[in-house]
Amino acid sequence: MMPLLTLGPVLFNWPADRWRDFYFRMADEAPLDTVILGEIVCHKRAPFFADAMEAVVARLTAAGKEVWFASPILAGNDRERAAMRDVVTNGLLPVEANDMGALALLAGQPHAVGPFINTYNEATLAWLAGRGAMSVSLPAELPASSVAVLAKAGAALGLAVEVQVFGRAPLAISARCYHARAHGLHKDGCQFVCGNDPDGMPVKTLDGQSFLTVNGTQTLSHGYLCLAGEMERLAAMGVSRFRLSPQAVDMVAVAAAFRAVLAGQRDGRDVAAELGRLVEAPLENGFFHNLAGAAYAAEA
């Protein structure tokens, strides 16, 4: 199977212009196979870039990219459920389900399963395949041993297995907004303070050590997950899709670097070293190496 490069949805609250321009640039310049759109963290943000959505889909499609629509991570209240339903019934784009509710609504249609559905083992993978999953993106916390088993099982089941190889690792989702809380605000009157932090709000320990990143109701890693050095191993396992999660860095350069690794033109370890210089936060690959997620194992 030809390995494919996927761009996950923008997780942060970017102004509509920035959001649109980012995707236009991805369409025009980034060597991506699939681009996943949608506001999956907070439904309150979605209206801001709704107007730009059509143009972005058109531009990406015209550039030969496959475009998917992702469902929200958490769909508890009625408005979140409505947002989930809107995504699933969009009638235009394939859907990546990030909650079991979305999966339920996708019954009988081919679809993708996102990293926020807990796919930890081959029994779950088989069940998902039986419901029409064409590809499954694995949770970031899975170690290499699990990825290997799942990639092999996926091949036998005829579905693509995807692994996130770049970008802050999503760690938690909540009904509570920590951005609002940190600013002494309530979620209902949040003043969209998450928009102040296009790459997330840094959270440090009391010793001043960088630790986590808050993005509204979502918590991410401080460091950037980077499996550039592990790409060869992932491909050998049978992983066929590689996900980049958008950050406020030069994502065209990031996509080009990973594309070059996939094409065998560059050594993944060199790319990892280069990315280490490109991003301000440290690189992390601990989850894959069965260590603390925050760790970086130099031996790929």
Binding site: E141, A172, I173, S221, F287
Partner: peptide
Amino acid sequence: GRCSLSSYA
């Protein structure tokens, strides 16, 4: 069931 904070640390 959707939290990896512990395994991150």
